[in-house]
Design a protein around this nucleic acid. Structure first.
Lengths: 190, 190
DNA sequence: CCCTTGACTGAACGGCTAGTCAGTAGTAGG
DNA sequence: CCTACTACTGACTAGCCGTTCAGTCAAGGG
């Protein structure tokens, strides 16, 4: 519902209708609309973090694992609009500390996982990187920014180009050639 | 007003009060609140683009010019909250095409200028870069993402670190050492 | 079979705010 | 001096939507 209508203009009645439930019931379980929204964000962020950890933990070489994380980061396709939620949440988070906390956890998890994968790759000698934390922050930031662009402007950037950028930046951060990453999977075009 | 209260919860009455004008007058000049907001975004984006072009056009070597653009990109200090406007606008832009158009122009201008500065640097031999457009897209994306983090989470990242990241990424894109950029100006710490 | 409790409904309330409108004041043109 | 026009005001309205509340229903315990 929020992806469809936006955080700001989603009404309690919309959610009630979509869940085949009365408006009263929503307020029986959640004191205020803010509570409901915050809980939803917390839950969504939580499962995203969990899924991310699983994906990072799956076996494979450092290149393979890093590339898997990158691919999980970016939208699966044009029709994957899940990022809209976080664009909305950023705007709300400017004013609401609870939301900001959730966002901090989510971004923190991404950076932590990225830093960990890069560190491990450096430890095994597959990567060359003397500042995994910094590299993770830069990669995370770049993906955030590029995904905004991808999500907002249909024609502005293809998913393939987005993935390419991610791989170029990642490859540079860990001292490898892009080609090593591009071999991981074909880049789609939409 | 919008920076203070947010796009979503700024009332016409707030703007009227802040400008010492009646609510009626606002609607005398702007048919709807949306018109007013859109016009404000257009105007803000317009002067930002103009200022950006001026800054890029100022004389200097390629390193100096690129660094100047990077420094203009990131907030001047903790108290510079101008980026909040664009976080809000991203959220609105998801649903409103007019806003999306303005955002596309703004981002387009940034990328264009970055690409131009990098191209010129490559032409004079100061830089080594075989894909200025791609480099510009990556730098622009990274800055967007990092500025979101900087704006949202007071303790999460210092302005100095933000600038450092920008310079590391830029230096890498143009085939130089970071130190070349760090000499441009001392990095602040707030 | 009664009573309590928790889940749930739908109608109603009330605060908020975008947009309207009737009217005022100043100014320029004739 | 009259007219027309533009800028402007402030009170009002209409509708939206979060929240409340009185009451229904089913289940379980004693």
């Amino acid at each position: 519902m929020v992806l469809e209508r936006g955080l700001a203009s989603t009404r309690v009645a919309d959610i009630a209708k979509a869940t085949n439930v009365s408006g009263g019931l929503i307020h029986y379980h959640f004191a205020t609309k803010d509570d409901l929204i915050t809980e939803m964000l917390r839950s969504t962020s939580g499962s995203e973090i969990q899924r991310l950890r699983e994906i990072a933990a799956e076996p494979g070489g450092a290149v393979e694992r890093l590339d898997r994380v990158l691919r999980f980061y970016i939208p699966a396709s044009r029709s994957d609009q899940s990022w809209i939620l976080w664009l909305d949440a950023w705007a709300v988070g400017v004013r609401e500390a609870h939301v900001r906390t959730i966002l901090l956890e989510l971004e923190g998890a991404w950076i932590e996982i990225l830093a960990e994968v890069i560190s491990q790759g450096a430890a095994t000698g597959e990567f060359t990187c003397d500042d995994p934390q910094g590299a993770a922050e830069r990669i995370d930031g770049m993906l955030d920014g590029l995904v905004v662009r991808y999500t907002l402007h249909a024609g502005g950037m293809s998913r393939g180009r987005l993935l390419h950028h991610a791989r170029v930046a990642a490859a540079r951060e860990v001292g490898l050639a892009v080609a090593v990453f591009e071999d991981q999977s074909p880049a789609p075009e939409d």
